[in-house]
Write a protein that binds this DNA or RNA. Structure first.
Lengths: 326, 326
DNA sequence: GTGAAAGCGCTAACAA
DNA sequence: TTGTTAGCGCTTTCAC
């Protein structure tokens, strides 16, 4: 636990000189510098980050809020964010707001206490004021706070249209459009995709049924239950649009009930994470480009931290990936 | 950005009194306390964590090192750890050592700089000295450092034996035993399961083939390639023991090649995460109890941070979950 | 080019 | 019971 004072003493110089030599800024004679560096090495000196933080009033830590990691979309996103943040010199503090049983506000309080330099939030609850009040830099994924908080999201309208085109193209007559109940309201942007799908399909004279899932459960048990129930209730549905894990649940539950896929039931999933192409049959998907989303989120955040006024929102293109379910 | 000094001034008291009133330790007259709290509220005072950290020389942050989050075992583990740590009053700093392209040592340096109070490591590389040198409290998952670093792991020997029993029970004649190349060496404990499986099977006169996977790739593309190659090379293998995602790859690649499962090929996966039971057919698995593992890791870590000398290692029971592949 | 001193915001010991 | 003071370890003026 050698301090810079110890280094200065051992090198026989003043404490300020040692600081300048080790931080590399300010004039130090080469010879003096050498002595100081040697002393530092001898004492295996390592600067105390806490003191540096206090002085600079920043920690180099970014807080990431996600509902949970057992939803593959979020674990991918977090992994990507962590990597991008590291490259920019930031560390990642992880907060899972649903799975741990403690909520968003607990975390916000914690983060607010000066601990983090900025926050990336990708959660689904509704206490917007807490964020708007925040003195930290905040960037949002897929959630519109309406205030000064920038948002990054995929081009959901294009996604909805694209899904509709594929269903129409395949001659579907009755589509089940199923998504999170919170996305109904408008705060969560992904709802746009589902609304656009509905509009496009109905304009083409195709019947659309809607169902909503809870946003505090991400396990396959829950998704299977939902899929099973829907398939029992709507026997003549011939197309489903749902997020990856739910789409997978429809795939298995459909097959269990003797449906041929894609002949009897077409499935398009939204997100297009790894799981949709690692199973057999591969699920046809509209892909959110998580790598680009992560880059946009981290770019906007770090530039804002440095005081730049970055344009508010950023919309990322979506892609179609042909699978075997539509 | 009001400081405690501002609060003290506004309340017309000394700075020490304000500190005592707000932290709740030390004598303060009720009336004075009320005044101070009111002042704090007016200024919306929130204590500066950096100053507290500097003073206490601790941050309340735990660093978690995992190879990546796109391997379902690790995303589940991290989620569980984050939740358990939060309950114990710690925050979680996430470090993905493989996926980000920057290694374990970069992170260790970073964490070593006093930033974290302790480290939970679940990575697979071999620079043991860096950990043994660490001045921070370290607890390891599934990796034996040989020194003073405690390890938490599943009962791999029992797992290997259990898998062997099931293969024998089903009348298998030729088993493919496939696992990470780093687990061969002995540092990574999970290798014990595979060694035990081999021993048990050979003792029963069953032929065992071995293959090894790279430890810097976790994507299904890689796993599918491996599974496909193995199935081509070893046409008469009738049983496979592999970790979850690889087991899934064997399932699909086997089916693609016209194998009936489990009739032609029995598959047992190790870890038994969600994915093995969310697909159809469900994969028969030996389950690592991630919730218990997380509890043990966080318990040992936090008690060590508080200076307790906790018994070195902790071994968690494994479970069998019957699926439809064995 | 270098050393001394001030101060980041807080807590804890010591006087009063 | 309360106010004052001395640091925690570092960086950054500002004289020398």
């Amino acid at each position: 636990m050698a301090s810079i004072k110890d280094v200065a003493n051992l090198a026989g110089v003043g404490l300020g000189t040692a600081s300048r030599a080790l931080s590399g800024k300010g004039y130090v004679a080469p010879e003096t510098k050498r002595k100081i560096e040697e002393a530092a090495r001898k004492l295996s000196y390592t600067p105390n980050v806490f003191a540096q933080n206090l002085l600079k009033n920043r920690s180099g830590i970014i807080g990431i809020l996600v509902p949970a990691l057992d939803h593959c979309f979020f674990s991918r996103l977090v992994q990507e964010l962590e990597s991008d943040l590291y490259k920019k010199g930031y560390k990642t503090m992880l907060c899972c707001t649903v799975s741990g049983g403690h909520g968003e506000e607990d975390y916000l309080d914690m983060l607010e206490n000066n601990l983090v330099d900025g926050i990336i939030t990708a959660t689904h609850s509704f206490n917007d004021e807490a964020y708007l009040r925040s003195k930290r830099v905040v960037v949002s994924f897929d959630r519109d706070f309406g205030g000064h908080i920038p948002m990054v999201r995929s081009d959901h309208k294009a996604a909805g249209r694209m899904a509709a085109e594929h269903f129409i193209d395949r001659g579907c007559k009755k589509i089940l459009n199923i998504y999170g109940e919170d996305a109904r309201e408008g705060h969560i942007s992904v709802g746009m995709a589902h609304r656009e799908l509905k509009d496009c399909l109905e304009a083409a004279g195709i019947q659309v049924l809607e169902e909503y899932t809870r946003q505090d459960k991400f396990d396959m048990g829950y998704y299977s239950e939902i899929a099973g129930r829907c398939l029992e209730r709507y026997r003549d549905v011939d197309g489903v649009f749902a997020s990856d894990p739910l789409a997978e649940a429809f795939l298995w539950e459909g097959e269990r009930r003797g449906k041929k896929i894609p002949q009897d039931l077409k499935i398009i999933s939204y997100d297009g994470t790894e799981m949709t192409r690692s199973i057999s049959p591969r699920i046809s998907a509209i892909v959110q480009q998580i790598d680009k989303i992560s880059q946009d989120l981290t770019n906007i955040l770090t530039r804002r931290i440095q005081g730049e006024e970055i344009p508010e929102d950023k919309i990322t293109e979506i892609l179609w990936r042909q699978g075997e379910t539509c």
